[in-house]
């Protein structure tokens, strides 16, 4: 195990805070629309991004607590109920959020919804990162399939942002090989959500 150095925790916390704030902005944008239009898809986007925002903000709080208490980066799972609860909320809420997003994409295409999840049924209890990767991969596929002009416009940016978040979770799986992978993963996560924020900004200007 090659854990990231302790000095990286404040940076990691900052990335999680930034990501949480962008997710919250997306959630509030969708909520505003839902209040007017009463469309279930918007409510699902609101719920999913709200859960993601809470997950990222709780993770930031958990990591900053671990940092202030002097707990080593690779031992955070072994220390204290608060820390364990923080990670449980992060993974639990993230999985429900990505699951809800996938359901929203696929609710009219039941076969599409089931197919990407099939490999995971083979595992009795897949690691939480693997479940998130599976859900994100299915979201990226669903998003790309529904693009009207593939790879272009705001749809292309949203696809790219989900793809970057997916790659960041894949890199986290291999963080033990080289902690540079962990830094790259966090960088990609931040760029992915920054793109999502840019999409909101562009939509706001279009209106």
């Amino acid at each position: 195990m090659l854990p990231p150095p302790r000095w990286f925790i404040p940076l990691d916390t900052t990335v999680q805070l930034f990501t949480g704030i962008v997710a919250l902005a997306v959630a509030l944008y969708a909520l505003r629309g839902y209040r007017w239009v009463k469309e279930p898809s918007l409510n699902n986007i609101f719920m999913a991004f709200l859960l993601l925002a809470v997950a990222f903000l709780v993770d930031a709080l958990t990591m900053s607590t671990a940092y202030l208490e002097g707990i080593p980066f690779d031992q955070t799972f072994d220390h204290g109920t608060f820390i364990q609860l923080g990670f449980a909320v992060y993974y639990g809420f993230s999985i429900v959020a990505y699951g809800l997003l996938l359901y929203t994409y696929c609710r009219r295409y039941s076969v599409m919804a089931a197919a990407p999840m099939a490999p995971f049924v083979m595992f009795n209890s897949p690691p939480l990162e693997i479940i998130i990767i599976g859900l994100l991969a299915a979201i990226v596929i669903a998003q790309v399939l529904r693009e009207r002009t593939p790879g272009r416009g705001v749809q292309g940016l949203v696809s790219l942002s989900f793809l970057l978040v997916l790659v960041s979770h894949v890199l986290i799986l291999f963080e033990s090989a080289d902690y540079l992978l962990y830094f790259s993963a966090k960088g990609m996560q931040m760029v992915g959500f920054a793109l999502m924020g840019f999409v909101l900004y562009r939509l706001g200007r279009m209106a």
Partner: peptide
């Protein structure tokens, strides 16, 4: 106006 705004938002997510 809000509907147009939300149409563009949902469209960005392919919905």
């Amino acid at each position: 106006a809000e509907f147009k705004r939300m149409e563009a938002f949902a469209d960005a997510f392919g919905l």
